[in-house]
Design a protein around this nucleic acid. Structure first.
Length: 414
RNA sequence: CGGGGCGUGGCGCAGCCUGGCAAGCGCACCUGCCUUGGGAGCAGGGGGUCGGCCGUUCAAGUCGGCUCGCCCCGACCA
């Protein structure tokens, strides 16, 4: 860690009020460049990549194929769907040197539909699911809460193409399940609720919310049948029990678009019966950065972040209590090496700081597992393994550390 | 966009109301000594011209105007 670029802060920066924003700044995960525009520092980027990896694996598993579309998009496309005017000032617009209108994509229905109409001819090419993980731009009325509502943010957006509504339902269901897997794997408590479809449009839509005290959205959850809704009156028909009011952060949204874009953009295919029909589409988004923020909102304490192990920038930190003592240093280095070899994502806090300083910082950053190498090691060859979230402590012979951590990791991953 | 708040070394703040001639405190940073199981101690040191512009005044961080930026509340959203 002596060389890790993770500039931590002892005090709360005055611009940050929300927990996740505060902890990400203090822990050296992000830095702000402008309102709603952030740099992800090495720790922040590692966590982001953890989320991205999980999302990518689940999208692929569900049949999605990854591609990458341009952020820079010509106005003509947006005029075709009418959104050049409808989207409003939130759309980041600019002109190229020749005075042609462009925007930075806040979403990619137009671009993907354009691609589809050029390339999809036959029902034999369907169903198809294409997705990307990419930076989006929305000039938010009011960026807020750090990366929770940013003007530039990373989003996974997947688009499904089917022959008919039946097919769309199948694709939608697959995505619904994929989303459940994504958020479970992120170690988050989520809930899916039927939702309004807003500017994106379409008929059926669900929001995925991470349950957290600080959530902006009210949700009503039935504890027995686990159904949820954003409208109080809609009592779970299944059991008719009472509803618990909770709060959630929207991290994903899936929509059945139908032919809302394919029709105006003339994205047709030839069906088995030889007739030309509009593609039946769905779109499915996940806010990657927002998921990270939500994970912190839902997983922290007075001392700092308590990362779910699947999202932690590193799984384990090895802390030699006193770097000046050869014994501590050597044992810590040896352990660190072994952990890396055993496939752990580890760091060693080899700074010549006081033990207290290193403990405090390890808590702030939120490494799920701490290994403390101190006097006990000198006397008995034992080191201490500590769990960040539960404060559980284990004393083990240093040769048994890897084995113990394997076990703990397995448990933490559920 | 409406309402509120804030801009003073890297971070957190004081000073501003009641201009005054040395811009200060804590943390961080650098050097040395010492210390290392919960953000150690001592000594020495470097760094700001007070968001910007215009004005008032003998004199502006302090007063006035304009402007830029950031945060919070509201209407919208991954």
């Amino acid at each position: 860690m002596s060389l890790l670029f993770a500039p931590t802060m002892r005090e709360d920066p005055q611009e940050a009020e929300v927990v996740s924003h505060r902890l990400m700044l203090r822990g050296g995960f992000i830095r702000q460049l402008s309102a709603g525009v952030y740099t992800f520092l090495p720790l922040g980027w590692r966590t982001l990549e953890k989320i991205i990896r999980i999302v990518r694996e689940e999208m692929n598993r569900a049949g999605g194929q990854e591609l990458l579309m341009p952020a820079m998009q010509p106005a003509e496309l947006w005029k075709e769907t009418g959104r050049w005017d409808l989207y409003g000032p939130e759309l980041v617009r600019f002109q190229d040197r020749r005075g042609r209108d462009f925007c930075l994509g806040p979403t990619h229905e137009e671009v993907i539909t354009d691609l589809a109409r050029r390339e999809i001819r036959s029902y034999r090419q369907l169903p198809l699911m294409l997705y990307q993980i990419q930076t989006k731009f929305r000039d938010e009325i009011r960026p807020r809460f750090g990366i929770m509502r940013a003007r530039e943010f990373i989003m996974k957006d997947l688009y499904s193409f089917d022959r008919d509504v039946e097919g769309l339902r199948v694709s939608y269901q697959k995505m619904y399940e994929a989303y459940c897997r994504v958020f479970s794997r992120c170690g988050l408590r989520y809930i899916a609720v039927p939702a309004e479809s807003g500017v994106i449009g379409g008929d059926v839509s669900h929001e995925f919310l991470i349950l957290a005290e600080s959530g902006e959205e009210k949700v009503f959850v039935c504890p027995s049948c686990n159904n949820a809704t954003t409208v109080e009156e809609a009592v779970c028909p299944q059991c008719g029990g009472f509803l618990e009011e909770k709060r959630g952060i929207e991290v994903g949204h899936i929509f059945q678009l139908g032919t809302k874009y394919s029709e105006p953009m003339k994205a047709y295919f030839v069906d088995r019966d030889g007739k030309e029909k509009p593609l039946v589409m769905g779109c499915y988004g996940i806010g990657i950065g927002r998921t990270m923020a939500a994970a912190i909102e839902a997983n922290h304490d007075e001392k700092g972040i308590c990362w779910p192990i699947s999202l932690a920038p590193y799984e384990v930190v090895v802390i030699p209590v006193n770097m000046k003592k050869e014994g501590h240093r050597q044992a810590a280095e040896e352990l660190y090496g072994k952990l890396c070899q055993s496939g752990f994502e580890a760091v060693i806090d080899d700074r010549e700081e006081s033990a207290g300083y290193k403990f405090t910082e390890a808590d702030l950053i939120g490494f799920p597992l701490h290994i403390i190498v101190g006097e006990r090691m000198e006397r008995s060859g034992r080191v201490e393994v500590k769990l960040r979230r539960t404060h559980e402590r284990f004393e083990v012979q240093k040769d048994d550390v890897c084995e113990l951590l394997e076990k703990i990791r397995k448990e933490l991953l559920g």
